[in-house]
Design a protein around this nucleic acid. Structure first.
Lengths: 149, 149
DNA sequence: GCTTGACCTCAACTTAAGTCGAGGTTGTAG
DNA sequence: CTACAACCTCGACTTAAGTTGAGGTCAAGC
């Protein structure tokens, strides 16, 4: 049997703070069972889960989305190569979309250099149709949320 | 003389909420003078300023950075074509950097598809050297802030 | 001259992703 | 068997970019 890990061990091995692990657990992203003295013990699979969480975060995916993705893994078991495949592909596609959106914005910005058109309605960047260009998991997730919901 | 605008008028014309305009003013991004009855009145230039703020935000630039950029405009005057030029170029360069970072991440993700290597230290995505790949004004500005400062 | 809608300030709340600290318990090395 | 490190919970705090609401004032049309 793989040895059980304490929070501290998971923290040092994964490079994530203990408080963050507590937090992930509260959010249902990872799980543990408890010792008689109410201390957490983790199976070795938690390291891979945390690794996935971190990678996904770097890719710009929110914990909520990560949680949903992890929860959607059949049976809630430790993700295997195939599961990871699916997540990777999904997230790579996400990333692609965001890259394209940013490229569109960049092109618009380049076009606008020197045009001084910002207050004019026809400017690409100010065109409402293109306004959703920066949508998706981006810097303004909060703003988007508060605007939309 | 260009007619003065009320907050409400600026709000409808710019598509930004009144509360957001108050907020921008508190942050020093826009200015107004007051009527005898303490109500805000704006010059027409505020519309262009707000337009610039929105575009910059869509590009992923924080209000703090936008404020700094606007404040750096010589004399605090209404930005003219040349000023806009400089800002555009700066922001386009920013955007470029972020696009490249995301592309690096995407490539890493693609390489990893099916490799099942997440728990292995040599994985590109888990390599500490590449960890800063998602740095910069991105989705995790907050996270970065709370980690770094 | 009064009513109604737009405006004012200020404080509290929101979201995400945690961190920090207080006050108390557990587990292990010596 | 005791000291001390590591663990526990819970609540408050952080940042960004605003929104919401209370309580009060202003301006414009009739």
């Amino acid at each position: 049997m793989a040895k059980e890990l304490t929070v501290g061990q998971v923290a040092t091995r994964s490079g994530v703070a203990v408080s963050a692990l507590h937090f992930y657990e509260a959010k249902g992203l990872i799980e543990s069972h408890r010792t008689g003295g109410n201390q957490r013990r983790y199976g070795g699979d938690v390291l891979r889960r945390v690794a996935i969480i971190k990678v996904a975060q770097e890719v710009g995916i929110s914990l909520a989305e990560i949680g949903a993705a992890l929860a959607s893994l059949p049976g809630g078991r430790t993700p295997n190569r195939d599961d990871w495949n699916k997540l990777s592909q999904r997230w790579a596609a996400d990333l692609d979309r965001r890259i394209h959106q940013l490229q569109k914005l960049r092109d618009g910005l380049t076009d606008c250099i020197g045009c001084g058109c910002l207050s004019i309605d026809r400017c690409k960047l100010r065109n409402p149709g293109d306004r959703l260009a920066a949508e998706g998991p981006g810097p303004r997730r909060l703003v988007v949320a508060s605007r939309v919901y």
